[in-house]
């Protein structure tokens, strides 16, 4: 139990260090991407090159990814400040979400299907 706990904490700490490294690099070089995206890319590269193995992070990453939706609840509570704004734009906002999702669905799916069929011929 104690061993598992310390393993978990160690893995979280490692992920946190990669995250912080991403943030630091982004702000140092003034890169126009979020620090967490760079952190994700860094970890991907470490996995590709074999510096880190998936199993070495399994405990923490399984837990965090399983419950990642939890973190969005406290953030979404901030919507309490925007209730009026939502009601004011409700129709346009709904149209925006629907139309843009349908367009992106169609373009992505159609293009890939077209390319697949062409290469099969």
């Amino acid at each position: 139990m104690l061993k598992k706990t310390s393993l978990f904490v160690g893995q979280v700490l490692f992920l946190w260090l990669v995250y912080e490294a991403g943030n630091k690099i982004v702000s140092f070089f003034g890169l126009p991407i979020p620090g967490n995206v760079l952190g994700m890319i860094l970890l991907f590269l470490m996995l590709l090159t074999g510096i880190v193995k998936v199993e070495q992070l399994a405990l923490a990453s399984n837990f965090l990814l399983k419950h990642i939706t939890f973190f969005f609840i406290p953030i979404a509570v901030g919507l309490i400040n925007w209730v009026d704004l939502f009601l004011q734009h409700i129709l346009a906002l709904t149209m925006m979400v629907l139309i843009s999702a349908i367009l992106a669905f169609y373009l992505t799916g159609f293009l890939f299907q077209y390319l697949q069929r062409r290469s099969e011929k």
């Binding site: 994700m40 860094l42 970890l43 992070l57 965090l64 990814l65 973190f71």
Partner: peptide, 21 residues
């Protein structure tokens, strides 16, 4: 309390590299 609760969101996001890998 939001800041406390979202402390682990950063590490969780980095872990998204694992399914990609």
């Amino acid at each position: 309390s939001k800041d406390v609760m979202t402390f682990l969101l950063g590490p969780a996001t980095v872990a998204l590299a694992i399914p990609l890998y």
